[in-house]
Simulated assay, not measured.
Amino acid sequence: MDGTPQEITSLVGREVYSNNGVFVGEVEDVRLNLDQEAVTGLAVGELNAELFSETVSPGEGVIIPYRWVRAVGDVILINDVIERLKQPEDVEEAVV
């Protein structure tokens, strides 16, 4: 438990990439579940405009569920689910 606060604060400022190598954003804060003493999400800002221009206003951020995190190192890798945000129209057109 002694290392936990240090580990959590070390997440802030790290860049987030999809596992396909696409830049997502930068961690600005973490969401915690204090009862379970666990990180539940990453508050990400400095977002990749190409991914989020349709869904998030400039200057805003998103919360990425921590369950999407695949690896934490010099950067944070998440599942490629985030890249599907930029394709919602394509999916709807394909269904019609």
Rank of each mutant, 00 (worst) to 15 (best):
E46G: 06
Y17A: 00
F52A: 10
V62M: 11
L34Q: 14
G59V: 07
N20L: 06
E7R: 14
V91G: 08
V81C: 01
R67N: 03
I78F: 01
V39Y: 08
F23H: 09
G59H: 09
G59Q: 11
V69C: 10
T9F: 15
D90S: 15
S18T: 08
S18P: 04
V91S: 08
G21S: 05
L34K: 12
V72T: 11
E37Q: 12
G25D: 15
E92T: 06
S53M: 03
V81S: 08
R70D: 10
P88Y: 11
R31H: 08
V27H: 05
A38D: 14
R67H: 01
V30F: 04
P88L: 09
Q36K: 13
L47G: 09
V95Q: 13
V96S: 13
K86N: 11
I8C: 13
L47P: 05
G59W: 07
V81F: 03
G21P: 02
S10A: 15
R67L: 04
V91H: 09
Y17F: 10
V12P: 12
R84A: 15
V16I: 13
L34C: 10
F52T: 03
E15R: 08
V22N: 09
R67S: 03
A38M: 15
A94L: 15
V22Y: 01
V12E: 15
V81W: 03
D2L: 08
E37I: 13
V16C: 11
L85A: 05
N79C: 03
V44D: 02
V62W: 07
V72E: 12
G73K: 01
I78R: 00
I8R: 11
R84F: 14
E50L: 05
R14Q: 14
L51K: 02
V16D: 13
E15A: 11
Q36W: 05
G45M: 11
E7F: 12
V91D: 13
I76T: 00
L47Y: 07
E93N: 12
N79M: 04
L51C: 05
R84G: 15
P5A: 13
V81I: 02
D74Y: 07
S18F: 01
G61A: 10
D29Y: 03
P88C: 06
R67F: 00
L34S: 13
V30H: 06
V27T: 10
L77D: 00
V96F: 13
E54N: 06
G25K: 12
G25A: 15
L32V: 06
V56D: 06
A94T: 14
V39C: 10
F52R: 02
V24G: 09
I78K: 00
E92K: 06
I82G: 02
G45N: 12
E37C: 13
V91C: 09
N79G: 07
N19A: 03
A43R: 04
R84W: 14
E92Q: 09
V24Y: 07
V62N: 06
P58R: 03
T9R: 15
E93V: 04
R67K: 01
V62Q: 10
A43M: 09
E83D: 15
V95Y: 15
G3A: 11
R31T: 12
G3W: 06
T55S: 07
E54Q: 05
G21C: 04
N79P: 02
D2Y: 06
V39R: 02
P65V: 00
E60S: 09
V69K: 04
L85I: 02
Y17C: 00
E37L: 14
R84P: 07
V22T: 11
V27S: 09
Y17L: 05
V27M: 08
L47S: 08
